[in-house]
């Protein structure tokens, strides 16, 4: 006689294969300074930073239901903090980046207290107003170049690493590390109790309230964490650019429109979506960006078409068809033969 017992597991065969493949890819990427050209490394860094922005936006909108079109506020803020710390206090970028993150999270507290008074879509535009306030405010600071912006002092850049190649490798690894950090934080967060609460809130605010979940606090927490990590990413973006200006730092197109595009195409509310989305976005950009405005027109049309016809994005559609999950979040009941 065989008895059956059940156990609960999150991993599946696909997720274990994905984990092994992921480690291999990561090792390959870490080694990029030895096999990739300078331009490739720049492109890859940019992809990593977009990936981290996309994952963070996805966490906000796809999991916490906070649809923001103003995350450029924190990208720009992080960038400016890096420059300010370097210029005014001579702090090395490697130290300034996490500091920018902490400052980003801190500034997010009063911001959240204010704009959490707005609901739904009005919240979205409220975040945009905040980004505008940041942009206009930094444009007033003449020590940071006012409206025309400023460059990172050469001495600071030299301090970072001895040679140019070494410096480029360092910024590359920082970008890669940022993406890994963001993925890890989000994964850990979603697997924690708070992640369960978030999913419950996303599925039904009313029901989760009756389970005693404090919606406001969960959303606040996610908003502040996201702001901090977004500011860190912003610091890295402008460390790579070596120049910052209010218009570049707080650009809604660069730091929100493209990011939303990535998440929508890949699949909102999934961990895998932004990864797919980043790859698709950069493929499109590398092949079509010569078209200029037409390229942006195409992006807009594709985003609308996906939203209307396949609202779960590429990954969501695939997942619905196959049940595939690379980052095991959902628990499944396993039948154990004994």
């Amino acid at each position: 006689m065989t008895t059956t017992s059940y156990s609960i597991s999150r991993s599946s065969k696909a997720s274990r294969i994905a984990a092994v493949a992921g480690i291999a890819v990561l090792a390959l990427l870490i080694a990029a300074p030895w096999w990739a050209g300078r331009a490739d490394m720049r492109l890859l860094s940019e992809m990593f930073l977009y990936l981290s922005l996309a994952c963070l936006w996805n966490l906000l909108a796809g999991y916490a239901g906070l649809v923001s079109v103003g995350q450029q506020a924190f990208v720009g803020f992080g960038g400016y903090m890096l420059f300010a710390l370097a210029i005014f206090a001579g702090i090395s970028p490697l130290v300034a980046i996490p500091m920018a993150g902490v400052l980003g999270a801190l500034i997010a507290v009063p911001v959240a207290l204010l704009i959490f008074r707005l609901r739904g879509a009005y919240f979205a535009i409220g975040t945009w107003v905040i980004a505008e306030v940041f942009r206009l405010s930094f444009a007033q600071i003449s020590a940071l170049g006012g409206g025309s912006g400023t460059s990172l002092p050469v001495a600071i850049i030299r301090d970072m690493a001895s040679s140019r190649a070494m410096r480029e490798a360092t910024t590359y690894w920082l970008a890669l590390g940022m993406a890994v950090l963001v993925l890890a934080v989000i994964y850990a967060l979603l697997r924690s109790r708070r992640g369960l609460a978030l999913t419950a809130i996303r599925d039904s605010e009313l029901a989760s309230q009756s389970f005693g979940i404090d919606i406001w606090r969960n959303k606040f927490f996610v908003y502040v964490i996201t702001a901090g990590l977004t500011a860190m990413t912003g610091a890295l973006i402008f460390l790579q650019k070596l120049r910052i200006s209010p218009d570049a730092a707080f650009s809604v197109n660069d730091w929100t429109a493209f990011v939303i595009f990535i998440v929508v195409i890949g699949g909102i509310g999934t961990l895998e979506g932004p990864i797919i989305g980043v790859i698709v976005f950069f493929l499109l950009r590398e092949t079509l960006s010569d078209l200029g405005t037409t390229y942006l027109l195409i992006l807009g049309v594709v985003a609308i078409a996906v939203m209307l016809k396949a609202p779960n994005g590429l990954w969501g559609t695939l997942k619905d068809r196959t049940g595939l999950e690379l980052f095991p979040l959902s628990r499944r009941v396993m039948k154990n033969k004994q």
Binding site: V69, T293, T294, A303, I304, L308
Partner: peptide, 27 residues
């Protein structure tokens, strides 16, 4: 087609529309 319980579709579709109109006008 975008209206419903979820606020995301109308928001994102009109966001896409905004990008289209801006770049169409630029063109």
């Amino acid at each position: 087609q975008t209206l419903g319980e979820d606020i995301l579709p109308p928001l994102l579709v009109t966001f896409g529309l905004s990008v289209i109109i801006q770049n169409g006008l630029l063109e």
